[in-house]
Design a binder for these strands. Structure first.
Lengths: 146, 146
DNA sequence: CTTGCCTGTAATTTATCATATTACAGGCGG
DNA sequence: CCGCCTGTAATATGATAAATTACAGGCAAG
């Protein structure tokens, strides 16, 4: 199982807002065209990014703007918002081990800490990566070949 | 989205094989009872663990046995076998970014390496954790309270 | 060598979740 | 005030995980 496309969609959105901010009006339909998904998906992701204080949205003939610089938006910030991180965790434990079996009775307790540790190193790595890193790569690539 | 329960089921299975190896005949039905899932799921997981050289299976009135000590079976070994790791990766990128948009045209290239790095730290942490660590915790807990 | 239990696996069903799509209410700016 | 845009509910579709049934084949005990 995998982390949903909402995460990479959100990264794409944020990168676009930055890239086009001085050129075009950035709307959910425009973003939907660039990302290649339905505008409603974009709106849902935008809505969560707004709640998290990552972007600012003004209705009407508007503009979506970044609420803070790209260097201060980490992959983890976006991941936490777009996927339901805290609820269940990255791992999905089987839910009905047999309480009459000594192993079944204790397996969850024995595993949960270890799984959390694994998830923690992943999240820490995500905190070290920012959307600015992506934007830099994209601008370099565009200069090279378009 | 999450890593499937097959992973924790496999850890449970391996722990059980070790725990009961001198006491009971360990079969897929017995394991299904301890894990709390259908025996067919157990057989499927066992089959993959066999392919990977982690357990040995003998048909007939048999016994499932470990092919190597618990200290040499890492979470990563099990994860790689039970989930389809190499195929798609942990992250699921949106698949149809617009090639006519400079951002859409380059977003995948800009993200893939960063996502792989994140996955890599997670997998390395998994390589540092072995099923023996789980077995130790379980035996300690059983001694304490049953 | 035969019999019974067990594995291997295909086929079908059910449940869940992600994404797509339609529809419409509400808000802001020109 | 009018038109475009966001916010969001409701529904449909598709993919995937897990449950379940069914049965062919193998090994070991006797």
């Amino acid at each position: 199982m995998q982390i949903s496309t909402k995460f990479t969609i959100a990264v794409h959105i944020i990168t676009c807002i930055d890239y086009f901010k001085d050129t075009l009006p950035v709307t959910s339909s425009f973003l939907a065209g660039s990302v290649g998904v339905n505008p409603v998906i974009i709106r849902g992701v935008m809505s969560k990014l707004k709640e998290a204080g990552i972007i600012a949205i003004s209705q009407g003939k508007s503009g979506i703007t970044l609420a803070r610089p790209l260097t201060e938006i980490t992959f983890y910030d976006v991941y936490k918002v777009t996927d339901g991180v805290n609820e269940t965790g990255l791992f999905h434990m089987h839910e009905n081990p047999n309480p009459n079996c000594p192993v079944g009775r204790n397996i969850q307790m024995a595993m949960v800490g270890k799984l959390q540790d694994i998830q923690a190193v992943m999240e820490q790595k995500m905190q070290e990566t920012t959307i600015a890193d992506v934007a830099v790569d994209i601008r370099r690539k565009i200069k090279q070949a378009g």
